[in-house]
Write a protein that binds this DNA or RNA. Structure first.
Lengths: 160, 160
DNA sequence: CCAAGATCGGTGACATGTCAACAGGCCCGC
DNA sequence: GCGGGCCTGTTGACATGTCACCGATCTTGG
């Protein structure tokens, strides 16, 4: 059995920075989001595709695909948001197995109130610190790594 | 109140890719880790600095700093790992408030068994898909964004 | 039509992360 | 030397995410 190819100092630094960046950036954004709007990152993730859909209503399966979550996580989160009046469940016409998730008035108000501040934070923490050229490079690199990941490494609900 | 500077299509794509990359890469790595070694990502995170320390023992506060976690999360995780025999708690000489976390024999065996496969996965999913030049660029960009984050955006346990 | 298998959503048990509060010990100025 | 403020770690309640499984329905081959 060959000696593993350990990360050298330069590689370890990159890996550490990558993890730190996600943790810190995510933490800062989520803290700001909760402070200003009372929405968690999970709430926000679901409200965005709902508010962007034509009627403010999506089939649960579609909602799941658009955020890349597995079904049970989605179901739990929708239940919690339903309890708080942000969304409502409805029957799915044409497929009795399915269900629909509809944005309520309160839900729409919440996302419309939260989005401007959130976008501003994303800009000031992330985009404003990168040149246009760096942004394009990041996109290309990340999409390449993403495309190389085994689609079935995790549960059965991989992104399409 | 000015109209928010919404993300354009190109920016939204980058942001989406960034989130997707973390979710998918992290998911793939964690799944592989659990399958091969029975260790969770959280277990692994703590075992690494412990195994790298001189005596396989660290003060809880130091362990917390090296992984960037808040105290309660660390305490809970150590409790779970203690229950499984991966680490042991000891008193902290010289500071009666503190505590030490020591790697057990089983813990050392677990991390030494898991590390080669994990490093190999990190290489094949991430490093092998990036040129040396891209790696250096990523490091520089990520460190710059990290440095610009407000140190106190989250709880009081920010990284030093 | 119809049985077998796939799909869809939900549930409960459990693992993990967050938050507020606490208990005890350190340290500094007075 | 001592009192108030800070540091350290733990705990319990709760929010969130994962896993295995279920029940209902759809779909497909025959």
């Amino acid at each position: 059995m060959a000696e593993p190819r350990w990360l050298d100092k330069r590689e370890a630094h990159l890996w550490q920075s990558y993890r730190d960046l996600y943790r810190e950036l995510n933490g800062a954004l989520e803290a700001q989001l909760i402070r200003k709007s009372g929405l968690s990152g999970a709430d926000y993730s679901l409200l965005v595709p709902l508010s962007e859909s034509a009627e403010g209503i999506l089939r649960t399966r579609e909602l799941g695909r658009s955020v890349g979550w597995e079904r049970s996580r989605l179901s739990h989160q929708v239940s919690r948001m339903e309890k708080r009046g942000l969304v409502a469940r409805e029957e799915c016409p044409g497929d009795a197995r399915g269900s629909m998730v509809r944005l309520t008035e309160a839900g729409r108000a919440a996302i419309e109130g939260a989005a401007p501040d959130h976008v501003e934070a994303v800009r000031s923490y992330f985009f404003d610190r990168l040149s246009r050229h760096e942004q394009d490079l990041l996109t290309e690199v990340m999409d390449r790594v993403l495309a190389g990941l085994p689609a079935d490494a995790r549960g059965s609900d991989a992104v399409c």
